[in-house]
Structures are given as structure tokens and as C-alpha cells.
Write a protein that binds this DNA or RNA. Sequence first.
DNA 1: ACACCAGTTCAAGGTGTACT
DNA 2: AGTACACCTTGAACTGGTGT
Length: 276
Amino acid sequence: MPKGIPNPAAMYGIYPRAWGFEVSIVRNGTRYYKQFGRASYGGEEQALLQAQNWRDGVVRSVPPVPRRTRAEKLRINNTTGVSGVFCQVASGGRVRAWVAKTYIGQDEILRTDFPVNLVGEAAQALAIEERERQLERMAGLAKLHPAEETIRKSPPASHSELLAPKRSKSEIRRSTNSSGVSGVHFKAPNPGHPGYWLAITYTAGKGSVSKAFSIKEHGPEKAKLLAIEERERQLEQKLMSNTAPANDPLTIPFRQGAQQGARQHGLATAEARPQQ
DNA sequence: ACACCAGTTCAAGGTGTACT
DNA sequence: AGTACACCTTGAACTGGTGT
């Protein structure tokens, strides 16, 4: 979509990314921003659904400024100190008239002239009063996007049952993963070593548990299969340990220090910040 | 790869001003 | 009063850089 041309309603404020979708909405100089990765939400469809749901929430909770407020804001090229009020200068620098002008809509632009030769010194004050009256006819909120009002006035969608919960990091398989299963890796300590498959699961605050399956002992296919099964067991243990910590004698505690460089960041961290 | 951030470009809405 | 046009402001849409 070219710049300046609104997105279709469904994609208002939503921008496709290589890895999912971004939502970016600006209100009164504040940008509301959040990301929705395919990997974190289990696919393209879910990521988009979550993005739309979050966007709709922002649109409903942060309405645009009233048109009147926007019209009353002084611009840098204003010369009179009152927006919409200006004077017409005749040749020679003499003020011919004071004018109040207000844009109500494409088909309705209000304008009243107060010629100085008719109303005298009061022309400016009369123009300011007239501008005030004109502004009273300016109703509604600033128009931002064709879909904005529809979304804001629609009731919050109750399709929460359609929204998958965000996946934990342990459920996300990275593109660099060599096994096809997150948390399962092939390791070969040195060139002469036949290698082994390792199942490893990290739990925040508790470090990692891991178990190795030697290719020398099991063969390559079975070692990998056993590692995948072990990984599933580890994930079950992780879920259970949220309520009751369990110690599996078959697993070895992984040195937590080796993991401390791991970043604590997640997708879809929402925030609003002022734009410069 | 993902998360975060910020700059740029563009169109629309609106104002200011000049001219008739 | 009507018209026209230049210009400004705002925010959507787009883009790319940097950190983790």
C-alpha cells in the first residue's frame, strides 16, 4: 500500500513483517505499538487475529481529538493570535477588514467579513466572536482513517475463544533449529566423536535440565527419537513444577551460568511512547 | 530471528491570504 | 461572498537500523 493511501479496514494500523505483524497507531503524538510474531502465536492467522484484537482495543480506548480542539490550535503561520481569524490588508498596509473563517466540511466553509470602514475598531473583536460561533458548528472527532470510527463504535468482539494464548519460548522452534523439535539438538564434542542427541529444557529461575542420548549406544535415529521423547517429558515436568517442584533422577542440572547471557525478551511487548 | 525504535514520505484536513 | 491556491499540521504507511 503506497504511503498516504489508507490500508483496507482489516489491516488498519497493521503492517506485515517477515516474521508476523506489527501494530502501530498514533494518537495525539503518542505511538501505540505492539508486535505479533507467527512463532509466538502459532501461525499467520492467529498472529493477525491477535494484532487486530489489540488494535481494536487501542482504537476504542484512545479516540481522536475533537475537530474543534484541532482547529483551535495555533499554527506557526498564524498572524493574529486567534486561529481562523485574520485581517485583509489593502494596498498601502491599511487593514481593510477582519475575517473569521472556519472549515466545517468540503461543502461548507463559513466565512464572515467585518470591514473596518463599516464597523470601525470593533472589527477584530467581532471577527473573534464570529469565529467562536463558527467553531460551535464544528462537531465530531478528527477523521483519521475510514475504518477508525467503525472500529471505535463497534462493541468489543467476544471472539476470545478464537484467540490462542501466546506460546512460551520453549514452544517456539527457531529457524536455526537442526532437529525440527525445539529443545532437541545434535552435539558432537570433537571430530572423532560419533555425537549424541541432547534434550534440554530451561525454566526461568531454576536453570535447565538436560539428557543426552549417544549415537554409539542407540544409533542415530533412535537417539534422536529418544531425545524428542525426553524433551516432551521435560516440558510436562516444567508445567507440573509450576505447582510442585519435582526432581527427575534421570536428568542432570544444567549449569545455569551458561544460560545467563540469554535475553529476557518476548514478542508483543506493548507500549505507548511520545513521538519526537 | 525477533523486539524495539525512530526517521521519512505521503495524503488529507485545515488555515491564511490574495484576487475577483 | 466566492474562489483559488500555497502552505502547515497530523497521522497513516513505509522503511531501515540497532540491540538482544
